[in-house]
Amino acid sequence: MDIAEPLLAAHRARFAAVDALLPPAAPPADGERLDAATAGGTQVTGVLQRQRFAPGDVPMLWSAADTWQLFPYFGDTGTEGADLLLRALKGRLEAEDTGDDSACVVVWPSRDAEAIRAFLDHGLVPLSAVGVRTAPPPEASPGVSVRRAGPGDFDAALKLATATFDYTGLVASPRRDNTAELLAPSLRDALAEEEPAAWLAEADGELRAFAHCAWLDAVPGTEAGELLPPGRWGYVNNVVTAPGERGGGFGRALMAHVHRELHRGGATRTYLYYNPTNPLSSVFWHRQGYRPLWTTWEVRPASALR
């Protein structure tokens, strides 16, 4: 989609100024265009995309079934420009019959405080964030045994992985009834790989924590390249400590091992998604050296946008 070159240049300059770790801002997305103008006559533009998911689609683990995602381009107009585009989105949605399982979503650089003001004013909340870690791997934690997980661990690993959503369903996206079924295929594939990126922490013969990870190459022009600076990254997909064991140091010991293993596989940096509204993970991951890069702002249902 074409956007005026001065606005696109201002958009890219904004990203570069807000956070030096952001990759160059991606070209405009395809979708429906929303336009507005500031009091001073500066044009701002948004691109609107709609995604619909079926009950068996994996994105249902974290997404509403009917999602309206806004890609804003407001350059140096700050809070005013963001506010105008969200007002335009609200006006657009008044013509739609949005159901209960719907959402308005904006993914935006976490450090852009001017935009945050507009998001809060319109009823959006920070339900998810991409956290990045650039520090070297930590030393091993004594007293906890960590090993690679294999096919024989599938049932135990799935039970632990599902437990993540039992908790996050209270503080972030609602838990789906078919969560285990949605998780199972990718987890089974990961455990069957010759060099799986999945680990289990054990103590006294009992499984205490589980981590499902991967390696990923961020290349310009790809989805990962729009999210992260170029290079080989470790992706921390799902980490959970067994209920009743949280706070005992098992997650910390597991991740010390995992960070070393991901580094050994060529990843000098790692990233993950976490919920800022989660009182456990929002503290745990910051202590592990992660900081937010992108934040997903969301309001459910879509009709609740102010």
Rank of each mutant, 00 (worst) to 15 (best):
3 I>V: 12
9 A>I: 04
9 A>M: 06
11 H>Q: 08
13 A>R: 05
17 A>H: 07
22 L>C: 02
23 P>R: 06
25 A>Y: 00
26 A>Q: 05
29 A>E: 07
29 A>M: 11
31 G>H: 10
32 E>D: 13
33 R>P: 06
34 L>P: 01
36 A>R: 03
37 A>D: 09
38 T>H: 05
40 G>C: 09
42 T>Q: 09
43 Q>C: 13
44 V>P: 14
44 V>M: 04
44 V>I: 08
47 V>W: 03
51 Q>P: 03
51 Q>A: 15
55 P>R: 13
56 G>R: 14
56 G>E: 15
59 P>R: 12
59 P>F: 13
60 M>N: 14
61 L>M: 12
62 W>G: 03
62 W>K: 10
66 D>M: 09
68 W>T: 02
72 P>E: 01
73 Y>W: 11
74 F>D: 00
77 T>C: 01
81 G>P: 00
82 A>H: 01
84 L>R: 03
86 L>K: 01
86 L>F: 02
89 L>C: 03
90 K>W: 06
96 E>M: 12
98 T>H: 10
99 G>D: 10
101 D>W: 07
101 D>T: 14
107 V>G: 02
110 S>L: 04
113 A>F: 07
113 A>Q: 13
114 E>R: 05
114 E>K: 06
115 A>G: 05
117 R>C: 02
118 A>T: 06
119 F>N: 00
121 D>M: 10
121 D>L: 10
129 A>N: 02
138 P>W: 07
139 E>V: 15
139 E>A: 15
147 R>T: 15
149 A>S: 13
152 G>D: 13
152 G>K: 13
154 F>D: 03
158 L>Y: 02
158 L>C: 03
159 K>H: 10
159 K>V: 11
167 Y>M: 12
167 Y>G: 08
175 R>Y: 08
175 R>W: 11
185 P>V: 06
189 D>E: 15
190 A>V: 11
200 L>D: 02
202 E>A: 13
202 E>K: 13
205 G>L: 07
206 E>T: 12
212 H>A: 04
214 A>R: 04
215 W>Y: 09
216 L>S: 07
218 A>R: 06
223 E>N: 12
225 G>Y: 06
231 G>N: 09
235 Y>A: 11
236 V>C: 07
236 V>E: 04
237 N>C: 12
238 N>G: 00
240 V>N: 06
244 G>R: 10
246 R>K: 10
247 G>W: 09
251 G>N: 05
252 R>E: 11
253 A>F: 07
253 A>I: 08
254 L>V: 08
255 M>A: 01
255 M>L: 12
259 H>V: 05
262 L>Q: 00
262 L>R: 02
263 H>D: 05
264 R>F: 06
264 R>I: 06
268 T>A: 15
270 T>H: 00
271 Y>P: 00
271 Y>E: 03
275 N>W: 02
275 N>T: 12
275 N>L: 08
278 N>I: 03
282 S>K: 07
284 F>H: 12
290 Y>G: 00
299 V>S: 01
300 R>V: 10
300 R>Q: 12
301 P>N: 08
303 S>P: 05
